[in-house]
Design a protein around this nucleic acid. Structure first.
Lengths: 193, 193
DNA sequence: TTTTTTGTTGATTGACGAGTCAATAAAAAA
DNA sequence: TTTTTTATTGACTCGTCAATCAACAAAAAA
């Protein structure tokens, strides 16, 4: 029954299944068989298309990053002023979708993997640079000289508050998280020195 | 050759070895045999004293937290004013020792484990609460009403900047990291509203 | 001295899992 | 029509590893 052109479909299904399985396990401790089963194929086929486990993981990470980037772009498109755009970037980081179990698991395990996998670290660096560049570009139009420092603070706050919120015992509240970061941003911008 | 009173010695050796092995692997993907070997005993003995793998991990996490808490206490003891004490807490979070490979690995994997292990989550909550309470106590003496919000921001910044610095490509610079957080803290305190 | 407690390990069990391979089948190209 | 390319899997290999157990040794208690 081989229908041609299956490759992209299979790959997408595997990526999707990987993200789900990692979310369910909370770790990278998932077997290729589990992933393949959820994606509706044999583990041999998963190996055939991706070569190995780590490459499947990296594809899943790449996908998570891509989705996140798209979300940021979407939010940016709706904003007018540099301040609004900065706000939009912050809010995008705390959107509901980023607090889904699978996404949280993806990020946490991404960090762990970044210690030892150079490809994972490369991807993480891309995320960090992109976030920083986005913030910097908009902040420069508000406070040119202080922009670099403010960008670092906002970026750090986004990551840090996200981490705390993601692992908190109560349900994560993206809204109050955003508000907190935006508050700190205002403080920085209001200072006149 | 059984010398009595070995238990605490063995346990300590296993905890130490676990932290080293996790640091070397970057993940929790280390075998009990590896740990036991580094600690100079058979894997059977490790099981004998700890019961299982997860309990060995948790003991290692507890130890990491304990060391960190001691460091904070030490730094606090040398500070006089509430502001200095707040500064001390921040600096303790970015001390050299916290940027050692094993410590970074311990924290990152701790976060991952906190998703699924209720004991790991409990420990993490203790860390978060303690940090927050420490900051709050000192900030209350400077800006009573704004203290809660400022504490959240500082705590978030500590975690977030640490994460970025720990996974950065360059060598981690605890000093500039502390400076950044302290700068943000000043901004909050200088605001008069 | 006999018994119990504490320390210790080699050997084993039982399970699981990554990656390979040969074989099958259908579509497309020659 | 023959051949090549693409899709697909069951079965298998080789390895690993957590956890258990029987057994041995020495100190302490009875």
């Amino acid at each position: 029954m081989p229908k041609l052109g299956m490759e992209p479909i299979r790959r997408a299904a595997l990526v999707e299944a990987t993200i789900h399985e990692i979310g369910a396990a909370g770790s990278l401790d998932v077997t290729v068989s589990q992933i393949a089963k959820r994606a509706g194929m044999s583990s041999a086929l998963a190996h055939h298309y991706f070569g190995g486990k780590e490459q499947i993981f990296l594809a899943a990470m790449r996908h998570t990053l891509t989705v996140y980037a798209a979300e940021v772009r979407g939010a940016l498109a709706m904003a007018e002023t540099p301040f609004e755009r900065t706000e939009a970037i912050i809010r995008a980081g705390f959107s509901q979708s980023n607090f889904r179990r699978e996404v949280i698991a993806a990020w946490l395990n991404f960090y762990v993997l970044a210690q030892t996998s150079s490809e994972a670290r490369r991807l993480l660096t891309i995320y960090q640079r992109r976030l920083h560049a986005n913030l910097l570009f908009n902040l420069r139009q508000i406070a040119p000289d202080r922009a670099p420092k403010i960008a670092k603070i906002v970026a750090g706050l986004i990551d840090g508050i996200y981490l705390r919120e993601a692992l908190a015992n109560h349900d994560s509240d993206g809204n109050s998280a955003s508000q907190l970061v935006i508050h700190a941003l205002r403080r920085e911008l209001d200072a006149t020195e």
